[in-house]
Design a binder for these strands. Structure first.
Lengths: 220, 220
DNA sequence: ATCCAGACTTTGATTAATCAAAATAATAAT
DNA sequence: ATTATTATTTTGATTAATCAAAGTCTGGAT
């Protein structure tokens, strides 16, 4: 059995790998992501390598093996199903569930997880729009188009919010920019790093380019 | 924050203390209950003593302090609410939930726990009839009367089953002796260590005295 | 009173995960 | 090409939890 620590490293490696698009992940990144000093990451990654969960080239970086990726996806499945469960069944606020799920994802058996999956009706995305890997460890990560680069003046459906920080999520919720909502980008000023978005009939919400990048959409 | 290990020792100490009726608990008992060698229990108990969670007298035994008992009751509250939740909301079998709850009880935040409590309507007992401690850490442990010592020929309501072994629980379930059921003890042969119980209109179920001791009742 | 058996404690090692700080390699700047 | 900067790896220690095995009580049995 993989320890919680091992599961967390694998999950984080998977997320970094997605963000960095398949390259080897620099040791500094994973150390920062895990909140440990670099030396700790080095020795942990070596151990993961010995277990066949990652490939590790000293001074080049680290990459998940197929085995490691499968395990990472199982952890991610638990995490995201738990998040949705906490929102849908227990009524927690979507800005809180990330932290709760980080604890629960290591304590849930397959048996319990599948009951949760049944209860939720085999959902495909969590409350932030992140895709839920299947039992077999498959994920559909669709092409990424955000409020920062989608077409202007055309109706867009918000599908995903790429930041788990409670503060950001509360902001998004306040502005009604949660997954499922239909919006239109009114103008985008790259120099000023500002994007103005119209939500339903209300007047435009303006947000920074960095924030806009974290809100993914799909043309309706 | 108390580690899962510390929480488990406290929970076990509480349960042993209930079973042994307030005496000091022998180190051998707690070692056996935790499944560790005696030396491990000694050093762990010393650590608990340093944290003010137990009183420890070398070669005399160990006893929870008020602080330790409060913490133990919080763990037990989590355990029992989770058990009931697993049965009522996720539909797990009552013979499986003990093991599941052992893992989950350390990963559940107060916030999530209180939502579960709300969802279940502030229950007072878990699926085995064990009382659920309140948020403040109070438990009502009623006087214990079992199928082995209750009055014969009088209707009794089963209130509690004192064994978490899946095999025993499945037997109890098969015979319809779960908490809530009304039964009557027909005869009891102490020499033969046998008890015959009538469940509803069906014919008598006979069980050993040891098993009868583990099924608590309350005269209707 | 002495001895013995069983319960308990000590001691020394081990494993997983971590940090601090020193050493090393690779990259960028002059 | 040499130097300076930065990332990474090593080394040595630490903490929590554990075991194995050796040592020590203590309460009966003789």
């Amino acid at each position: 059995m993989a320890s919680s620590t091992v599961e967390n490293y694998l999950k984080q490696l998977y997320l970094e790998q997605r963000a960095e698009d398949g390259q080897m992940i620099a040791m500094g990144r994973i150390a920062a992501a895990m909140g440990v000093v670099p030396g700790t990451a080095t020795s942990m990654v070596k151990a993961l390598c010995d277990s066949g969960l990652v490939e590790y080239e000293p001074r080049a970086g680290v990459r998940l093996t197929t085995k490691g990726e499968t395990l990472a996806l199982h952890v991610l499945r638990r995490h995201r199903l738990v998040e949705l469960f906490l929102v849908k069944v227990l009524g927690l606020d979507w800005s809180d569930v990330h932290a709760e799920a980080d604890a629960l994802e290591h304590a849930i058996s397959d048996n319990v997880l599948e009951r949760i999956d049944d209860l939720l009706g085999h959902p495909t995305v969590d409350p932030h729009g992140d895709p839920i890997p299947t039992r077999k460890g498959h994920v559909h990560e669709p092409r990424r188009m955000s409020l920062a680069d989608c077409e202007i003046g055309v109706a867009q459906k918000i599908t995903r919010v790429l930041d788990q920080e409670p503060e950001f999520l509360r902001f998004v919720g306040r502005q009604g920019l949660m997954p499922g909502t239909t919006v239109t980008v009114e103008k985008r000023d790259v120099a000023a790093e500002a994007v103005v978005v119209r939500v339903s009939k209300r007047d435009g919400v303006s947000l920074g380019l960095a924030a806009a990048t974290k809100i993914l959409v799909e043309t309706r």
